[in-house]
Design a protein around this nucleic acid. Structure first.
Lengths: 142, 142
DNA sequence: CGTTGACAGTTGTATGGTGCATCTCTAGCA
DNA sequence: TGCTAGAGATGCACCATACAACTGTCAACG
């Protein structure tokens, strides 16, 4: 049928684009996001979004080993962006909470990221942006 | 206007999805792709696709430091998946070529990757798959 | 010619993110 | 009064990466 790609072609395109995307995100993650690296940024972001985050939740969310999360959180606490305190509800677990500096750093980084994303999507038809968001979201949640 | 997201919402969705995607690809890259890791896979794949690949081209394509590429290629050569020889046309550069084992490993890994991707997209309307490929490709090329 | 400069690639060194194995501490339960 | 399970921390090793310094090779120009 003319005007339509075969499934294979579309899959190839997605496959190749995903390789580039993954490589890009890996390299980009070494750049500083206005002082906050990619990994700390994702951690702070999740803690901020969650109602009451725990280390194990973060490990679960990102598929990381608990030890990795523990170290990341320790660094964030040292940097003064986060406090780990006792949780009155689950006494074995720790409550994670951003400090003022943590909120500030997160907001700055998020704004910079958003700015970068907007720039990348500049010139896209509005409909494509919406569609891209819809499809990408469905993809990562699969 | 009802039925349409504001730009901000769509951008938020993309932003959040990209975080999850990047985290996912970072973690997934540690898993073995039927014997070929993510980084070696991308290297071999590019060399295979290019007509006559050189180390500098790979560095350029993925935004990597030449030293990183050099080491990756050295490992691939040690593993017997790649040969680095003199290039008759550009005597300063090296010709990169996959060995038989290299082609085999690449094919196996690519098939496994494709299979995984198909599974993830199973149940998607065909139109969405094509559209996703189109948008993702445009995005990574921006 | 010989010198000089640009370029390709390698090696030394350091860093950051990660996993696995192991340890500690606390809570709840027999 | 222990015993077990769960949350998190720590020791250790590994991989991908960047930056800086080095080697070797060609090319152009005096």
């Amino acid at each position: 049928m003319p005007g339509e790609d075969r499934d294979g072609d579309a899959l190839d395109a997605i496959h190749r684009a995903m390789i580039l995307f993954s490589r890009g995100s890996r390299v980009r993650s070494n750049e500083l996001y206005e002082g906050l690296g990619f990994v700390p940024y994702t951690m702070l972001s999740s803690i901020d979004l969650a109602d009451c985050a725990h280390a194990a939740d973060l490990a679960q969310e990102y598929g990381l080993d608990p030890s990795t999360v523990s170290r990341q959180l320790a660094e964030l606490e040292t940097a003064g962006l986060l406090v780990r305190g006792p949780d009155p509800r689950h006494s074995r677990r720790q409550r994670l909470e951003l400090t003022e500096d943590g909120h500030r750093a997160l907001a700055i980084t998020r704004a910079a990221q958003r700015e970068r994303l907007e720039e990348r999507l500049r010139g896209w038809p509005r409909r494509d942006v919406v569609e891209f968001g819809r499809l990408l979201t469905r993809f990562v949640e699969s």
